[in-house]
């Protein structure tokens, strides 16, 4: 059993206080959907949880490990707004590198993940030639091979067609059933079962 603990988090951007004194415990098996209007601090919260931003106040722990620790970073995966794909590299080359940043690479598992997301035959295609939805599918393939306990997904369904959304939702549900934690933001309707909602 793992727990992601947020203690009295405050975040300020410029003169705007986005959220203040936010405390929360997200347990194994939880899927937490973060909602809010544009600029309410959803992405800022995920970036704080990923260790990319520093909160004004408060701290974050996964079990006993603080956000800056190597153990915390090893157990979390963050997929942001940006594709994180170099257009000069193929889908597989991009995925191999991005996966290597988090864990050991299993090339066949990556090919299987691409196939699962409907990208069979695209392994060696340059990312410059893919559509926005296909690029999103490539980066989401990382989830299928990830060992991380905590998934931090910023707008994962953007540019995906309904079939793509369904595949990713199933993947998130499976992760939660296996004891993982998922925090995500979306402006779209989500059919995820047992999702909890945090409104900012």
């Amino acid at each position: 059993m793992s727990a992601l603990t947020l203690n009295h988090l405050s975040c300020q951007r410029g003169y705007n206080l986005l959220f203040d004194n936010l405390s929360l415990v997200v347990n194994s098996g939880d899927i937490l959907r973060i909602t809010g209007t544009n600029g309410s601090g959803k992405t800022s919260l995920l970036k704080i949880l990923a260790g990319l931003n520093t909160p004004e106040q408060g701290d974050v722990h996964l079990d006993d490990y603080p956000v800056q620790s190597e153990e915390y970073q090893q157990d979390t995966i963050y997929l942001g707004h940006l594709s994180a794909l170099a257009s000069e590299l193929s889908c597989l080359e991009n995925l191999k590198y991005l996966t290597a940043l988090n864990q050991a690479i299993d090339e066949q598992a990556l090919i299987d993940a691409l196939n699962h997301l409907g990208l069979q035959g695209y392994e060696h295609e340059y990312c410059a030639k893919l559509s926005a939805g296909q690029k999103r599918r490539v980066i989401l393939a990382m989830l299928f091979v990830s060992n991380a306990k905590v998934w931090l997904l910023d707008e994962p369904f953007t540019a995906l067609d309904p079939q793509g959304v369904e595949i990713v939702e199933k993947c998130i549900e499976k992760h939660a059933q296996q004891g993982g934690i998922c925090l995500f933001t979306t402006h779209q309707d989500s059919a995820l079962k047992n999702q909890k909602i945090l409104a900012l």
Partner: peptide
């Protein structure tokens, strides 16, 4: 610059390496 633009730097920063 390019890694900043496409988000690879974010992945590097959130990596345990």
């Amino acid at each position: 610059y390019h890694d900043f633009e496409n988000g690879v730097l974010e992945q590097m920063l959130s990596s345990h390496h």
